[in-house]
Design a protein around this nucleic acid. Structure first.
Lengths: 166, 166
DNA sequence: TATATTGGTCAACATGGCTGACGTAAAACC
DNA sequence: GGTTTTACGTCAGCCATGTTGACCAATATA
């Protein structure tokens, strides 16, 4: 401990910085999701419902298997959530035009309303953080987050951007 | 749809940007935790154990109630996790010097080993992302993440930095 | 001494992951 | 046309991790 050399000091700082990142990630994710969680609790839903609603809203007509690859959960888990959402009138499905085995998923009016309520809530939090931090910071934020992704996820996101109908 | 004004276009872009942030946050957190999760699964532990180990390692001698405020869970949930960790020899406790009701928590050798394995794994991911993105991006990343926090959390982190014995 | 604080325990419950097994309809292939 | 594969669903049960509520013990403090 006494004979700390510059390199030791540098490594120490580096570890501190990395830990700061790890912790910020934990706290930010917790706070970022917490607000939506309380709205969901009112409707007797959880975060799993939110994720399904979000990505169906984002990709109307998505197939079950595509939703599964986005969420990385088992079909049994998703099925439970989807059945609930359909029963409660947030989601509908219709058979695929070309492949009639597929069940294309859509939000209902109610589903759209809930999705937009949740997304605008989280969006406001992001907007405030972005505004405070400034444009350059936002760019850095997104670059680092992308750097944290698995390569599979990067491919997946790239693919999604291609097929997106924007 | 036909008479979209500049303001409409701007809002559209803004919403796209916000959604990109929301999604990046989801995917990055998932991938960032996923790697550690698989190590934990080997030891029959989950993310809850990881969080406890991490913050005990970070604050040796932390009291149960301080750990509770960091984690924001009930004492029953924490108690279950802590009992397991103590039984399996990752954590020890000793009574507080001034207040003997307190049980100060410490990692054992085994606990330290596991913590450092997990943290260095996540640290490597962060280090790679930081290296790729560059110093300015890292600063922006941290600024935006801090902007996403609840004000309570900000206070809490500030307080922790003060009492930290660095 | 009376009260508040720190921490633990037991019981019961919900959510949301998981595995495994099995079924059905439709597409794709030989 | 018959077989295989794919897309999806269901039932059953398990585990981790969160929750409430009730209750208890030791200790600090006013």
């Amino acid at each position: 401990m006494a004979d700390v050399k510059p390199i030791g000091k540098a490594l120490f700082l580096r570890e501190e910085e990395l830990r700061r990142g790890i912790e910020l990630m934990f706290f930010a994710y917790r706070d970022f999701t917490g607000e939506a969680d309380s709205i969901l609790a009112e409707q007797n839903m959880g975060r799993a419902h939110h994720r399904a609603i979000y990505f169906i809203g984002r990709n109307p007509g998505i197939t079950v298997s595509d939703l599964l690859t986005i969420l990385c959960i088992t079909k049994q888990s998703l099925s439970r959530v989807l059945s609930g959402l359909m029963q409660d009138g947030y989601v509908t499905q219709k058979p695929g035009a070309t492949d009639r085995r597929q069940r294309l998923l859509y939000l209902t009016e109610t589903g759209i309303a809930l999705e937009s309520r949740l997304t605008s809530l989280q969006g406001r939090r992001f907007a405030a953080a972005y505004r405070e931090a400034g444009v350059d910071a936002v760019d850095g934020f997104q670059r680092v987050l992308r750097g944290l992704l698995d390569s599979d996820t990067i491919d997946q996101i790239a693919q999604q951007d291609q097929t997106s109908d924007i």
